[in-house]
Every structure is written in structure tokens, then in C-alpha cells.
Amino acid sequence: MTNATEQRHRPRGSLPDYLTVSVVIPVKNDAVALTRCLAALADQTRTPNETIVVDNGSSDASAEVARRAGARVVECVRPGIPAASALGYDAATGAVILRLDADCVPDPTWVEMVVASFTRHPDVAAFTGGARFVDGPRMLRRPLAAAYLLAYTLATAPALGHLPLFGSNVALRRDAWNDVRSSVHRHDASLHDDFDLAYHLGEHHRIRLLPTAAMGMSMRPFTSASGFATRIGRGFRTVTVHWPHDFPPLRWRRVVWNRLRRDRARSDARLAR
């Protein structure tokens, strides 16, 4: 019988090829937080096959921290999270790509839970998870995180016609990324990369919520009024850059039509067995 220690540090080669996992972390000048993030990834119950840290022009020790932890460092010379995230996805070799931020702290079962969910739901192209704050007033951490994610969903879902992706806790199949990699706005640093990815992925692929895949994240982006205003501005920019093609009524019709076609194809496949 496998003991708990052996299970927690399962050799990387034990994963079947179709379940290989790449973790992508964009970073810029966040060495301290990255150290904590990588330590949490090393303590996963299911070890990722590779961890890719995309260094977006750091002047601190972020790249060295990543290398010491055994991560593969990819240099991104183009500024902005959209460029860094996309480059990380391009570099990933796993069948499943997990994305989080450098200031995130995944729960120990994060990787295992996401991979198990992809196994159970072969029709799902991407999962988006929940979050909790790991700093700030202790009593407010979970309710504020829940309120933030609810507000984000309510603000973005009407534009998309489906669930958005939450960039601090995203998992997607690499073949789904390959379908959209040439259409995402990777060179526009003024928009939200996760929101943009949801536009391109969600029209033809299924996105599903996985609230039990817990993720700790820092409250620091929300402690500055100017920083929060910048986030709002990027949200509007992400919406308008997709118009007129993705003007909501037009997009909703395509999303519904594509969903019906997928459901019909799955039904026909089951009947043909």
C-alpha cells in the first residue's frame, strides 16, 4: 500500500501522457511572492510535469528564484501579462495547462483535483476555479474574495454569453489553447489576458466552474484605488476590442448555436456506439 509520503511525492513519470501537466506563472519583480508560490507547488499531492515561469522583464531575483526551485524560465521581452501568459502557454508541453499568478498559493490538492476533473469531463476545454485572500483582515478574506469573484462574473458573463476565466486559477487543455493561440490579443498589454482568452475559447469550447479547486491569492492589487481603476479600464478595453464581431446579441446567438451543435454531436456519437 502506498503511504502518504510516497503519494505526495509521486514521480513525474507516473502520469499517463494524456494527463501530463504544465503550470504557467507569469512574473515581474515578485521574487518573494514567487518563492512562496513555488513552495506550494512543490507540496502538491500530484506533482506537475513541468513548471514554467515567464519572466516579463524582472529586475529582481525572480528568474533566479524560479531556477533554484527547478522551474523552467522563459524570457518574455514584450511587456504585459497577455504576452507573458501566451508565451507560457506556447512553451507548455503538458496536455493540461494550469495558470496562476506569482502571488498565489494553491491548496495542496489543486493539481490533482483539476486533472481528475478533466478526466471525468472530457468535453470540458477549460476549468476556472475559486479563490480566497491570504492576507488582509482575516475575517474578511473569504467573503471579500467571494464578493470580488461574483462581481467579476456578473460584469463579464453578459458580454461573453458564458462563464469567464479567472486568471489566478485557470486550467485548460493544450489542444484548446492551440485552437485559439493565433487569435488572442497577446500583444495588447492594456487588456485582461484571462478575459480575452475567455472570449476566444468560450465561443467554441466548454468552460466549466470548479469552485473546489481552491487558490489563495494576495489582496494587494485591490488596496490601491488607482490600481483598481486600472483593472476596470482594462476590462472595458477587453470588451470593446472585440466589437463589433462580439457585440453581445451577435455573440450570444453564436455561442448558443455552437453549444447546440456540440450537444448534438455528442448525442450522435453516443448513439453510434
Rank of each mutant, 00 (worst) to 15 (best):
R142G: 01
L271W: 00
D246C: 10
G167Q: 12
V77E: 15
P16S: 10
A40R: 15
R120T: 12
I97R: 11
D268P: 03
G161C: 01
S267V: 06
V77H: 13
V105A: 05
P164Q: 15
L140G: 08
H205T: 08
G130R: 04
R78L: 12
A155R: 13
D123V: 07
D246Y: 02
A225V: 13
V124C: 07
S59H: 13
D135Y: 00
V23H: 03
T2C: 10
A265D: 14
N29R: 06
P11Y: 00
V239W: 12
H192S: 15
N56R: 05
G57M: 03
L150I: 09
D123Y: 07
G70P: 15
L98T: 03
A39D: 11
S14W: 13
R220Q: 09
I81P: 01
R234Q: 15
T20C: 04
H9G: 00
F133C: 02
A171L: 11
R254Y: 02
H192Y: 03
F127A: 10
A198I: 07
A95G: 10
L144I: 02
K28C: 01
L250N: 11
Q44K: 01
L19I: 03
P108N: 04
N29V: 01
L144S: 04
R99L: 07
I232G: 15
R132D: 06
V105E: 07
L19W: 01
P108S: 08
R234I: 09
R186L: 08
T20I: 06
L201V: 08
P26C: 05
V74C: 11
F222P: 11
D17P: 14
A151N: 09
L38S: 06
R208Y: 00
P11H: 05
I52E: 01
R67V: 04
G136W: 02
L41P: 01
V115T: 05
H242E: 12
R270C: 05
V184A: 10
Y89I: 01
M217H: 04
L250S: 12
S59N: 13
N3A: 14
R253V: 05
D103Y: 04
A71H: 09
A4V: 13
V74N: 07
V180I: 15
N49C: 15
